[in-house]
Simulated assay, not measured.
Amino acid sequence: MTQPVPTITLVRGDITDQHVDVIVNAANSTLLGGGGVDGAIHRRGGPAVLADCRKLRASHYGGGLPTGRAVVTTAGDLHAQYVVHTVGPVHQPQLTGEADRAQTELLASCYRESLRLAGELGARSIAFPAISTGVYRWPLSDGARSAVRTVREAAREPLFDIRFVLFDDAALGHFEQALAAAP
């Protein structure tokens, strides 16, 4: 018997409007909110999201969440059950060779760790932003290829609905190209 293959879809819009089991937050290491996707999720999720993040900071992550790792909180007022917060790497174009590969691996780890946690929660649907491609300046084309490749390789049951929610047409275009080129 063959395993059902998760469906990957692309959505142009606001990730905070998604009705899914898990929304992934492109968080900063403080877990206390910020700009972009992180700020939008904290604002729309309300005080329950921030309260959970503060508990994480007070216990296991006093120094902040390391890059490439992920943690779970309630989704508060979002149309989801959980938020998975993950910290992407800041793009450093001067890096080459092994250092560049290490940064790319940290980006891939954000997607893998988010999928792992969603699977442990029994989630059937998940919505991702384009991690690190905003204020962390990761090039959209490379970020899209890494995201699509990693999610295709790492997605497992019970996840069947995997969405990349892209805020603008430029990001959507890069993800469309990456999805079309992926095996």
Rank of each mutant, 00 (worst) to 15 (best):
V87I: 11
G35T: 07
I15R: 07
E120I: 10
G134Q: 08
E176C: 03
D142K: 14
A170D: 12
D52E: 14
H174S: 02
T67F: 04
A108E: 15
G134N: 09
P139R: 13
A180L: 00
A181L: 10
V11A: 10
L78T: 06
E98A: 15
A51I: 03
R69E: 15
Q92I: 07
D14K: 12
I41L: 09
M1R: 12
P158I: 13
L179V: 01
S109G: 12
C53H: 06
A70R: 06
N28M: 05
P47T: 13
A80C: 10
G97C: 07
T150F: 06
D161P: 01
A147R: 07
V87S: 04
V20G: 07
A99Y: 01
L95M: 11
A70D: 05
A181R: 10
A170W: 00
L107D: 04
P89L: 11
T73M: 09
H60G: 15
Y61N: 07
E98F: 01
A75D: 11
D100Q: 15
V24M: 10
A171V: 01
G76T: 07
V71E: 02
A147S: 14
R12P: 01
Q81R: 15
I41F: 10
Y111T: 03
F160G: 13
V11Q: 14
S114M: 10
R152D: 08
Q92L: 13
D17N: 12
M1W: 07
V83C: 11
V148C: 10
R124W: 00
I23W: 01
T7Q: 15
R124M: 07
G62Q: 14
I131T: 03
A102P: 04
V72W: 03
E98W: 00
A144E: 05
G45Y: 03
H19S: 14
A99R: 14
L115R: 09
L106R: 14
A102S: 14
G76N: 07
T30D: 12
R116Y: 12
T133A: 12
G63E: 12
I15W: 07
A102R: 14
R112A: 14
L10Y: 13
G97F: 03
A130D: 02
G35M: 09
C53N: 12
N28S: 06
Y111W: 04
V165Q: 02
W138C: 05
R163Q: 15
S125I: 12
D52Y: 10
H174R: 05
V135H: 11
R112P: 06
K55P: 00
G36D: 09
